[in-house]
Write a protein that binds this DNA or RNA. Sequence first.
DNA 1: TGAAAATGTCAACAGCTGTTGACTCAGGTC
DNA 2: GACCTGAGTCAACAGCTGTTGACATTTTCA
Lengths: 177, 177
Amino acid sequence: MKTRDHILQAATLRFSQCSYEEMKLRDIADDVGVDVALVHRAFGSKERLFAEVLKSVMRPEGWLDGDLADLIPHMARRVLADRSSRLGTVDPLQIVARSIASPKARELIRDAVLNDFIRPVSAKLSEADQHDATLFTACLFGISLMQHVVGLDLSSEETRPADEKKVEKVLAACLAE
Amino acid sequence: MKTRDHILQAATLRFSQCSYEEMKLRDIADDVGVDVALVHRAFGSKERLFAEVLKSVMRPEGWLDGDLADLIPHMARRVLADRSSRLGTVDPLQIVARSIASPKARELIRDAVLNDFIRPVSAKLSEADQHDATLFTACLFGISLMQHVVGLDLSSEETRPADEKKVEKVLAACLAE
DNA sequence: TGAAAATGTCAACAGCTGTTGACTCAGGTC
DNA sequence: GACCTGAGTCAACAGCTGTTGACATTTTCA
């Protein structure tokens, strides 16, 4: 595996754990064991590095495959998953949620979310409605943000199944015509 | 009106337009027409200034007054309001949404949201459920974020009434038992 | 009045962090 | 061997921004 790939991998993990501003190139350099200058030069700039991370992570296998009926419970489960079951994994929702307010990252995220999430979801609707798909995405982001970034729990271990059902209902309400 | 109040007012407006990191003390100084040092000293630190803004804005008149049945349409309307109808106004949701990912602001926001929003909403529920109230808050934040920070529209002028109805349904689904 | 406290200014510091230029070194190619 | 290219290191720069100390000015009040 090339060093460049190691850098991308380390950056992806970092960006899913902290915001664009919090994420220092020197942290990645330490993770990989190289100099900061190399991290910078490998992608040209921090901004372009973030763009690469976003690109690689917004098209994962099975992200938006299959049916709407599968998508909703899948997302509900994912978004309520607790920290222990997410160790080491990378969640695109979290990367987006963490850096969405950063001026440098905002436009990149805007485009990625629109093209790689909202539009595909919209296309799955019987009457393709971008407002509905955007509402759906908004709620998903809000939940992910609250749960993983702010740290206010939306679910406890005991009530997990009922909580997932409720989130499914909320998400379904976004897409109902 | 004392200069300190002018500073607080300018800061409130600024924080509702950009994130904690983006908001520079020098901007406020220019707004008010004083030196940066004064802005800093008036509140002790940028962080304490933000805390004051948060405190002053999270207890506005009529924020959470009245019935649950009123709260839902009120929030639906507020969260879909377009830019022109919000000129000069300050929306607590936006202040929170814009800075929620900032490490310095995160804890302050966490406490404020929990104490001044989630708990009061939870108390209004027939069976006070904090998970439900948190889900409600999460969706609200997500929608506000998408609409006002990211800039992806959830509604257009022509479809406004129907869009508000849909958001009401989504919010109601969060609180249904 | 006169002292002291508050209000405010100015300039400079300090720390961080992305970025860049100069250099080294290994490996492949002619 | 000579040359060149790409990977990598090192040190330093540059710009920003919260913060602070020293000083000037106004207000307060005994």
